[in-house]
Amino acid sequence: MLQITVVDYGSGNVLSAQKSFIKVANDNNLSVKVLISKDLNEIKNSSHVVLPGQGAFSTCMSGLNNTPGLVEALYEFAIIKQKPFLGICVGMQMLAKDSEENGFHKGLGWIDGHIKALPKKDLKLPHMGWNIVSPTNKNKLVTMSQDYYFVHSYYFECQKKENILAESLYGINFTSIVGKENIYGVQFHPEKSSSQGLKLLKNFLI
């Protein structure tokens, strides 16, 4: 049986992530337990870990850092044991080295890159709504260009081309999926992206 833990550190719509994985499991006859937890043992015992994130980068990072042992447990899971890890929205951004949102804040630094503000130009911010995600490197999450639901004002400026799995366009081309071996991050919300979003979550699981 798979055990997915949606990391509960006081941010984000963790419930939506949990419910979408339950839906994926039911639709595909998968035996899955989906937890919302920050229990270090539960994380250790998981087959998959999902890191959601909503709101400001610094608030999310403090949320992680303020739970003793949490960052270390996630590091052990994703980097040392190399088990499947998915960051969503700010959960994706926290994989970067740092962010310029409201100052300068350190991230987890698992994937080389910085979080920068989307250029304003004549566009409305946040970048909110459905936009095309186009794969740039072969990956297990998405195989073709499709629309997914975005809500963000900052983006992941990826330093290594091989970590850019997909791009989207909003004023500039930006990285909408990052990946490094077992670690994935999506800027958009698969849990809010209808059937193609659920498909992506399924691809992450199996």
């Binding site: 419930l15 419910k19 979408s20 639901y149 919300h189 849990e191 992206s193 209808s194 059937s195 979003g197």
Partner: peptide
């Protein structure tokens, strides 16, 4: 609704 609807 959140159990069954996966759009915002």
């Amino acid at each position: 609704t959140a159990n069954e609807v996966f759009i915002p």
